[in-house]
């Protein structure tokens, strides 16, 4: 397994370089270093000299990808791409274009993101699996049919609708929790109830449908028929046998998103004023802060690759037949 993991880590390096190049090209297709300087220096009374100074200080005065003025390897290394990307592989994110340490900001902002993402994942799993098992139990009855209809309706509704509707109903009409905001420590709980509730409700449609499909697939297998023939109650069949065997696809689906929980939710954090990494990324895009965008894309890619690796490893843990080679 260790050889497999090492191989996967090595595979990740060209993938990350490719992602970096793609991010770099996409960003600089629409923004030039001059644009970035103007965005940071303000709209009024910006002189060409100030722009040149700003670029020189931050290393944006070099060519983007190829430096024809230099010799040898410096033609590639003395470029914005090389200078800005190399340190990412050492997880040194550097300083944002507004002079804040990105690593420090990430370390501060990942906790609020996790404070929402983890409960949404856990409570969502519990609710979705329970509901899906219930539907599977009442398969081919009106409960099944109408539940599927309800799930399709729920998954067709925009996430934004859940957020705005939830804020309107729970906070504005019923006055039960604050409409937005955040705090530290236990005081954060009252601010987290609504976004977590909305996150869970918003995920019921898609989650339940998927799990229902998995359970129904398992229910028709021979071992389930055998369990029933042994005289086990339907509850025991579902919870002890079906659920256990359906865990493989459920687990893989969950493990792959685990590392990405750090990245936060772009819309939810923005609407609820949660100072997480999702809103950090959105702000950086709006401000054309390439340093942060680059760092967040890199971090997201690394976490996604880790998620895929963990998924493969988790296969071997839940299914002894699977061997990594």
């Amino acid at each position: 397994m260790i050889a497999y993991i090492i191989r996967r880590v090595l595979y990740a390096i060209p993938i990350l370089i490719g992602i970096n190049i793609l991010t770099f090209v996409l960003f600089f297709v629409v923004n030039s270093p001059d644009d970035m300087a103007r965005m940071n220096l303000g709209m009024k009374r910006v002189t060409p000299e100030a722009i040149e100074n700003w670029k020189a200080e931050r290393g944006y005065d070099r060519p983007l990808l190829y430096n024809a003025a230099r010799q040898g390897t410096e033609q590639l290394t003395n470029t914005i791409f090389f200078q800005k990307s190399l340190k990412l592989f050492q997880f040194e994110f550097g300083v944002s274009d507004s002079d804040r340490d990105i690593g420090y900001d990430i370390s501060q902002r990942m906790w609020p993101s996790l404070a929402i993402a983890v409960p949404v994942l856990l409570v969502g799993l519990l609710v979705n699996i329970t509901y899906a098992l219930l539907i599977a139990f009442f398969r081919a009855t009106y409960i099944d049919i109408w539940s599927v209809v309800l799930c399709v309706v729920m998954m067709s509704i925009s996430g934004l609708f859940y957020i705005i509707g939830g804020q309107y109903l729970v906070s504005k009409l019923l006055h039960l929790v604050p409409i937005s905001g955040y705090d530290t420590g236990l005081a954060a709980i009252k601010f987290l109830i609504l976004p977590v509730l909305i996150g869970v409700v918003g995920g019921i449609g898609a989650g339940t449908r998927w799990y229902r499909t998995l359970f129904l697939e398992e229910i028709n297998r021979d071992y389930v028929r055998t369990a029933r023939a042994k005289g086990l109650s339907e509850g025991l069949v579902l919870f002890r046998h079906v659920l256990k065997n359906a865990m493989i696809p459920i687990l893989t689906g969950v493990v792959v998103v685990l590392p990405l929980l750090f990245m936060g939710s772009l819309i939810t954090e923005s609407f609820f004023g949660i100072p997480g990494l999702g809103s950090y990324t959105i702000d950086a895009i709006n401000r054309q802060d390439f340093a942060i965008v680059r760092a967040m894309v890199f971090l997201g890619s690394v976490l996604y690759i880790i998620g895929l690796l963990l998924t493969d490893i988790s296969y071997t843990l839940v299914d002894p037949r699977v061997r990594l080679s």
Partner: peptide, 13 residues
């Protein structure tokens, strides 16, 4: 001063 990026929560508060 609290950060409120969206208009709806700000107005309702």
């Amino acid at each position: 001063y609290s950060l409120e990026k969206e208009v709806i929560p700000r107005w309702n508060k």
